[in-house]
Design a protein around this nucleic acid. Structure first.
Lengths: 163, 163
DNA sequence: CAAGATTGACGCTTCAATCTTG
DNA sequence: CAAGATTGAAGCGTCAATCTTG
């Protein structure tokens, strides 16, 4: 109203939240029948690439709170997708590995995940997609800068990512 | 790897999730001391604009699950920000209204919310911001189309928005 | 004391079921 | 039966506290 930029900001925030909710529901619907979800697949994929990981490695790679990781691993273990074994070198730690069932969930769902993404971006051309990525990364970087300015003593940064 | 577009998609998804998490934390940190949050402010603002609403109105406006609304209102009521009163015209329904405390939380936090947004978009110029909005809306629309194709019998659509 | 993992309490969101009233 | 509201179980995330081991 007073400032037109404010309204733009609000629209942006609204649209981002709406889009995120829709993405969450969409992927959820498509993946849940296979015992998967985006969060699970990213985690399984991370474990698979690393061979075996500790809880703390996941915390660092994904920037999750420790609680999130313990709970996620509990669920994966309950469903028989990962195994937790004592670390022979450090009795505080546990090594997490994929079970055969976990590997098979990952191998079956990952291509499906890619298919879903292709379907979503079907109507967007590559240049636009790249521009979107650039803008999102810009904002992400901005937030990281603000985080550092605020918690002037806290942690550095990192990314989980697929590659 | 095989398809370069796949990697682009994955980066996009990762960045979107990362950005969303950062936004959530950032706004949370800044607003929690005032008994607010983005979700709460949007809800309070909706109630204020409408004067009084029913639970079902919120469900429709925000496209939330009924559970989400009941829980959100429970929390606001517990903190004394809204009041639930029986609807005199329909004994199934309840009318939700802002308390003075609710109004004051809204009036104090809303400008602060705007300030946070300005700080975040400080380094982004208006044209880029508009382009970002356009691309996000494009994707949102694409997902709505996919939703309709899938649940060929389910609900229509709407938006909550600030204006 | 610091690091690794876990737990309790909570926020926000979903789905499915239930209870009351129109 | 349909509509309004609530509740139970769950996913995914946060913070703060705790317990064990290095």
């Amino acid at each position: 109203m007073l400032n037109p930029r404010t309204s733009l900001h609000e629209q942006l925030l609204d649209t981002m939240r709406s889009l995120n909710a829709r993405l969450h529901r969409h992927f959820g619907d498509e993946l849940k029948t296979r015992g998967a979800s985006v969060a699970r697949l990213k985690l399984l994929s991370f474990i698979q690439r690393a061979g075996s990981v500790r809880s703390a490695d996941v915390v660092e790679a994904f920037r999750y709170a420790p609680r999130t990781v313990t709970e996620a691993l509990d669920a994966l273990e309950r469903d028989g997708l990962v195994r937790r074994a004592p670390d022979p070198l450090d009795r505080r730690a546990k090594r997490i590995t994929l079970t055969p069932a976990g590997l098979s969930v990952l191998e079956e769902a990952a291509p499906h995940l890619r298919a879903i993404m292709e379907r979503i971006f079907d109507t967007v051309d590559v240049e636009e997609e790249a521009e979107l990525l650039r803008l999102l990364q810009l904002l992400d970087a901005r937030l990281i800068a603000l985080e550092e300015k605020a918690g002037a003593s806290t942690d550095p940064s990192a990314q989980a990512g697929t590659r």
